[in-house]
Amino acid sequence: MRIFSVILATSIGLSSMNAFADPSPALDRFSLSVGGYYVQPTFNIGVNTDYGRAETGDLKRDHATLGRIRSDLLLGDHQGLAFDYYRYSNSFDASIARTATLNGQAVTGDASADARLKIQLAQLAYKWWLGSGNTVFGVGLGAAYYQADLNTTARGSLDGVSGVASYSRSDNAIAPLLEVGVRTALSDTVRLYAEASGVKKNGGSTNGHIYNGNVGIEWFPLKNVGIGADYGITKIQLYRDAARYDANLGVKLVGPTAYVKVRF
Rank of each mutant, 00 (worst) to 15 (best):
V6D: 09
L8K: 12
S11G: 10
S11T: 15
S16R: 13
S16V: 10
A19H: 11
A19R: 12
F20H: 14
A21C: 02
Y37K: 10
T49V: 03
T49K: 09
G57Y: 07
K60S: 13
K60W: 03
R61M: 15
R61G: 12
A64N: 06
A64H: 03
T65P: 00
T65V: 15
G67A: 13
R70D: 14
S71T: 12
S71K: 01
D72L: 01
G80E: 03
Y86T: 05
F92C: 06
F92G: 06
A94F: 02
I96F: 01
T99S: 15
A100T: 14
N103I: 06
G104E: 07
Q105I: 11
V107E: 11
D110A: 12
A115R: 04
R116Q: 10
Q120G: 12
A122L: 12
A122S: 12
A125I: 04
Y126H: 10
Y126I: 05
S132F: 03
G133M: 08
G133D: 11
V136Q: 07
V136T: 14
V136A: 08
N151I: 12
T152M: 09
L158F: 15
G160W: 10
G163H: 05
S168C: 02
D171H: 06
I174M: 13
E179F: 03
G181D: 04
G198W: 04
G203R: 15
H209G: 04
I210C: 10
V215H: 06
F220M: 07
F220R: 08
I227D: 00
A229F: 10
D230E: 12
Y231F: 13
Y231C: 01
A243N: 09
A243F: 08
L249K: 02
T257W: 01
